[in-house]
């Protein structure tokens, strides 16, 4: 076989493999969309779920997912920001920093089920917080932190050093320079990172089944008192999320229309995550344009 023949065959093999992957992609997306879309209706989105009879919706699960996401971001963003600032602005190039980075890497490589079990052990059981949104949000924070730290650090790092020099040369403190100059300049990147991480958090289930729990008590959406047990804002109530719901109806096998509920819920999940992805891109671009004066 001449080299040219080999070349042609190899190229064809590669093209063939790519074709298969593309077919798988189309099949996946097509399956989710085709089997999911017909089940999405106003009724589906706005009625509570029912375990033992058909026709249940996903209202509470959808809300729980969003609420959990917000709580998670509220807890994880400041922590991640502070840590990223430490790593990008204060940390020296020494063994201590290396150790810290290793620790964060270890955290990011832990399977989410292990992180969830840790949350279960410490918060649900030791701290008697029970299956609750708060336990879930803390577990998701652990799972979210390393990624968020990495993406924020990257955005801070991308701000040129000349901006830091400009700040401190005016007699500003490092902290003021970071807060007032570096952070705003890094904001588009940081926001993009947050939104992308939000997508991951939104779809996560393994870390939640033993922290936020697998039950969705009926919520009272007119009760705005977060300390009341029936209030939708109560962070101490158990909260099954959309992703957990998909898992549960499929593994328990007691809901008659489990397949159509899961299909609909999967499609909703994917749509929300798609929105996050597009949103991240759009916001990043928009802010970048605004800051650079359209240049």
């Amino acid at each position: 076989m001449t080299p040219n023949q080999t070349d042609r065959i190899a190229t064809q093999v590669i093209n063939f493999l790519v074709l298969i992957v593309v077919l798988i992609l189309f099949f996946l997306l097509g399956d989710i969309i085709l089997s999911g879309f017909p089940h999405i209706s106003w009724h589906f989105l706005t009625s509570p779920s029912s375990s033992f009879s058909a026709g249940g919706g996903i209202r509470d699960q959808l809300f729980n997912s969003l609420y959990l996401l917000v709580l998670t971001l509220i807890i994880s963003f400041p922590l991640a920001l502070g840590s990223a600032i430490y790593l990008s602005e204060y940390a020296g190039n020494n063994w201590r920093t290396g150790l810290i980075r290793t620790a964060i890497e270890v955290l990011s490589s832990l399977p989410s089920v292990v992180v969830g079990l840790f949350g279960y052990l410490l918060f649900v059981i030791e701290f008697h917080m029970g299956f609750s949104i708060l336990s879930g949000a803390i577990a998701l924070t652990f799972f979210n932190l390393p990624l968020l730290v990495r993406s924020i650090e990257g955005s801070l790092h991308a701000v040129p050093d000349s901006q830091r020099e400009a700040g401190i040369s005016l007699g500003l403190s490092n902290w003021r320079t970071i807060r007032g100059i570096i952070l705003p300049a890094a904001l588009p990147g940081i926001l993009t990172g947050i939104i992308l991480s939000a997508g991951r958090v939104f779809g996560e289930a393994a870390a939640l089944i033993y922290t936020a729990g697998q039950s969705a008590p009926i919520l009272n959406y007119s009760n705005w008192n977060p300390t009341d047990s029936s209030s939708f804002l109560n962070p101490m109530r158990p909260a099954e999320t959309l992703a957990v719901h998909i898992w549960k109806v499929n593994t328990e096998g007691v809901t008659p229309d489990a397949v159509s509920i899961s299909a609909g819920a999967s499609a909703v999940l994917i749509i929300v995550i798609l929105l996050f992805n597009f949103g991240a891109r759009a916001i990043g671009n928009h802010m970048y344009k605004k800051m650079t004066g359209g240049k």
Binding site: G82, E89, Y90, A103, F118, L122, N174
Partner: peptide, 23 residues
């Protein structure tokens, strides 16, 4: 600023250590 950012990173380190320890 130092106190704030050092605290955050310390929290993460403690978290990692406690995960390893508890599990």
């Amino acid at each position: 600023g130092r106190i704030i950012s050092y605290t955050c990173i310390a929290a993460i380190i403690i978290l990692v250590i406690s995960i390893l320890y508890f599990i």
